[in-house]
Write a protein that binds this DNA or RNA. Structure first.
Lengths: 195, 195
DNA sequence: TCTCTGTTTAGTCAAATGTCTAAGTCACTT
DNA sequence: AAGTGACTTAGACATTTGACTAAACAGAGA
C-alpha cells in the first residue's frame, strides 16, 4: 500500500467515524444505515463494507475511538497535581452543564446501543471503572481535608451517579434544580476552602 | 361494537402493549417491528395497523401506559402520610437496587426513544416533573427535621439524579459502590432518627 | 334464520437495507 | 510505457420492513 493511499484511506475511515458520530447526535443509533453514514461522510456506501466489514462493526469502532478520547479527557480533567481540587471540580461541572450537549448525546447513544449488544458492555464498564479510579484518586485528599463523613467509595459513587443523572435529564431537555444543586456544592466547597 | 368484541379487542390491544414491553427488555426499541410484536403477542400482524395506525403510534401508547403506571407507583411510594419517612426511603431504595431490572430497562428504552422523537419528550418531562413534585413534598419535613444544609430543591435534584445514575449504571451491569452509598445514607438517616 | 356491521386474516406492494461483486481507476514499479 | 496491485465506484441481489387491502368471519339484532 502506498503512503498516499494510506493517508487517503485513513481520511475516509475518519470521515465515516465522524459522520457516524454526527448521525448519533442527529438521529440516534437506530437511524444509522450504511448509505446514510456514507452520504454524510461524502464517500461511496460500498466503503463501509470494504473498510469495516459491516455497519455493526463501524459502530464498534466509533465506540472504541470515543471511549479512548473520553478516558483521556477524564484523566486530563482531574490528573494534574498542580491544579487545586476546587478548580478541577469547577471545570468538570462547567463541562457537565455546558452547552456541549452533542458530546453527551453521543455517549448516551453508545450506552443505549450497548444495552442490547452484550459484546459492547465490557467497553462501557471499562470506561466506568477508569472514571471511578480517576475520581477516587482525585477525591482522596479533599475527602479527608474537608472532613466528609461518607466513606470515599460511597462519595465517588454519589458523584458519578448524580453526574450521569444530570446528563440523562439534560438529554431530555430537563435542567430543573441542576443549577441550585451545583451552586450549593460550590458554595460548600468554597467556604471550607477559605478556612 | 358489541361488549364481547370490546373485551376481545381490549385483550388483543393489551397483549400487543405487553408484548412491546417485553421486546423493549429483550431487544430494545430499535429491534421492534410490526411482525415481531404481533408474533410475541400471538395476534395477526395486520392488527398493529388496524388498532394503532402504525408501529410508531403503538410505542406512543406503550409510553403513555407505562408513564401512567410509573407516576402512580411513585405517588404510592411516598404519598401515604401514615408511613414514616425512613420506611418510605428504604422501600424506594429496595426497589432501586432490587432485581426488577426489566422494569428499569423498559423505562430507559422509552427515554432513549424520546431522545430522537421530539413529540415524546413532553411526556418524559411530565413524569420527571411529577416525580420532582412528589419528592419535594415528601422531603420537605425531613429536610427540616434532619437539619440538612442544602436547599430543598437542590436536595431533591441530588436524589433524583443519583437515582437515575444508579439505574443507568445497573443497565450496564455496573453496581460498584451502590451498596456502600445506600448503606451510608441509611445509617446517617437511622442515626438521626433515634435522637 | 338472515342480514349487517365491525373484526380478523392472509397476502400484496413499494421502499429501504446489508451485503457483496464486477468493472473501472489510480499511483507506483519495472 | 506497460504492467501490477490495491483502492474505489456503481450497481445487483435477497431480505426485511411498514403500510395497506380484499376477502373471510363472527356475533347482534330484525
Amino acid at each position: 500500500m502506498t503512503d498516499a493511499a494510506t493517508v487517503a484511506r485513513s481520511a475516509a475511515e475518519g470521515a465515516l467515524l465522524d459522520a457516524a458520530e454526527r448521525l448519533l447526535v442527529q438521529v440516534g443509533h437506530a437511524g444509522i444505515t450504511t448509505r446514510r453514514v456514507a452520504e454524510e461522510a461524502g464517500v461511496n456506501h460500498g466503503l463501509v463494507h470494504y473498510y469495516f466489514g459491516s455497519m455493526e462493526n463501524l459502530l464498534v469502532h466509533v465506540l472504541e475511538r470515543f471511549t479512548e478520547r473520553l478516558t483521556e479527557r477524564q484523566r486530563a480533567m482531574y490528573a494534574d497535581p498542580e491544579i487545586p481540587f476546587l478548580e478541577k471540580w469547577r471545570q468538570a461541572m462547567r463541562y457537565l452543564v455546558g452547552d456541549d450537549v452533542e458530546y453527551e448525546k453521543i455517549w448516551l447513544e453508545l450506552q443505549a446501543l450497548s444495552w442490547n449488544r452484550p459484546e459492547l458492555r465490557d467497553e462501557i464498564a471499562r470506561v466506568n471503572g477508569e472514571w471511578r479510579a480517576v475520581l477516587t484518586e482525585a477525591f482522596a485528599a479533599p475527602h479527608e481535608r474537608y472532613g466528609i463523613e461518607m466513606p470515599l467509595d460511597a462519595l465517588v459513587s454519589l458523584v458519578m451517579t448524580f453526574n450521569e443523572g444530570i446528563i440523562l435529564e439534560r438529554a431530555q431537555g430537563i435542567t430543573t434544580g441542576h443549577g441550585e444543586l451545583l451552586a450549593w456544592i460550590d458554595g460548600w466547597l468554597a467556604a471550607r476552602e477559605k478556612r
